[in-house]
């Protein structure tokens, strides 16, 4: 390793750093001696212990944003810090809604490129090389960052394993948000959480997903029932989320969640690249689809060419009988 300094955006969810930020802190430790976390939203003090445990020696806290969407104020505060002479070699950003906003704004402010869909990072003789999944993960593209730092890398969830290092509590440094004029004017009026039962989609050991092949929104109940019987979470392809059958929170794929469960069961999903990129890391894949040519079968450990409307009810019945 021969780069000096890496910053990691540590987005919070329910008062804790999101899993991807801990994965990125772990990776940052392997890349540079100085690792800092960036927080916002007012939770820095409570999260500092965890962030230190995963390798951050400093926490740059942008603090409470007064309801503003984070993209502009967080990018503004970081650009200010960089302008003051504190320049990292790389900034690692979890591929979340807010993470992408911060990365895009910061890229334009600093006039440095932002590299997205990163699934791997390495440092060789002070050159940072990033790996990107292209065409639904069928190709791995390696790119060398050639510009002046910082390189901004937006990294997909579960690209690295999170491992605590047992580091001490980091120092917290407050960052001020400069006057950003109109660009920071987007304000959150209210937050709505959708109800969820069972394990979280991106943490579940078993994920059962449904696609267009289900035929109608009502049939998604079969997917939910099977997921429940296997103590898993119910997912969905983009096609049926776009069609309004299920909320976006269930979407697995490029624009949705990345999942790597022990078992993934794809029901009536053809396997568009959009979808595959979010689930092909699953340890075992079962696919049920009536089209034998569906791309999903090329990655399935067990492929069933059949009608989900016939196979799923029998499977559910067989599992219920075993309880």
């Amino acid at each position: 390793m021969s780069i000096e300094k890496v910053w990691v955006l540590a987005e919070a969810a329910d008062g804790s750093p999101v899993a991807t930020s801990l994965e990125l802190l772990t990776q940052a430790r392997a890349m540079a001696a100085n690792v800092a976390a960036v927080t916002w939203g007012g939770g820095a003090a409570t999260m500092a212990g965890t962030l230190g445990d995963y390798g951050a020696t400093v926490v740059y806290d942008v603090g409470d944003l007064g309801g503003k969407l984070p993209g502009a104020p967080v990018a503004g505060a970081l650009a200010e810090l960089i302008a003051s002479g504190n320049r990292p070699d790389a900034i690692l950003v979890p591929a979340t809604y807010d993470g992408r906003d911060v990365a895009g704004r910061l890229s334009a402010k600093l006039d440095v490129p932002v590299l997205t869909n990163v699934v791997g990072l390495s440092v060789d003789d002070s050159t940072i090389t990033s790996e990107h999944a292209a065409f639904g993960g069928s190709l791995v593209v390696k790119a060398r960052f050639t510009g002046d730092g910082p390189g901004i890398f937006v990294v997909r969830a579960k690209s690295f394993a999170a491992e605590a290092s047992g580091g001490g509590v980091p120092t917290i440094e407050q960052l001020a948000v400069p006057d950003l004029g109109a660009s920071a004017a987007a304000t959150v009026l209210a937050r709505h959480a959708e109800e969820r039962t069972g394990p979280k989609l991106d943490e579940a050991d078993v994920v059962v997903s449904g696609g267009r092949g289900l035929g109608s929104a009502e049939n998604y109940a079969l997917v939910e029932e099977l997921a429940k019987l296997l103590n898993g979470a119910a997912g969905a392809s983009r096609a049926i989320v776009d069609a309004g059958w299920v909320p976006y929170a269930h979407q697995v794929g490029q624009t949705g969640k990345t999942v790597k469960p022990t078992l993934y069961i794809a029901c009536g999903i053809s396997g568009a690249t959009q979808h595959l990129v979010g689930m092909k890391g699953s340890k075992n894949i079962v696919a049920i689809n009536k089209d034998q040519e569906a791309p999903i079968f090329s990655i399935a450990d067990l492929g069933v060419v059949g009608d989900v409307h016939k196979v799923l009810p029998k499977l559910i019945e067989a599992l219920q009988a075993r309880r």
Binding site: V112, P113, L115, T129, A133, A134, G137, S138, L139, V140, V141, K142, A143, R144, F145, T146, G147, K280, I288, Q292, F297, S298, I299, A300, D301, L302, G303, V304, V305, G306, D307, K310, V311
Partner: peptide, 25 residues
């Protein structure tokens, strides 16, 4: 300001068993 250094096929995930449902899949 970025240079693609290599493009390679991702580790292939081989397909497994394919069965055609005849009522007992």
């Amino acid at each position: 300001r970025q240079e693609i250094t290599s493009v390679a096929a991702a580790e292939a995930r081989g397909g497994g068993d394919i069965v055609v449902d005849e009522g007992d899949a």
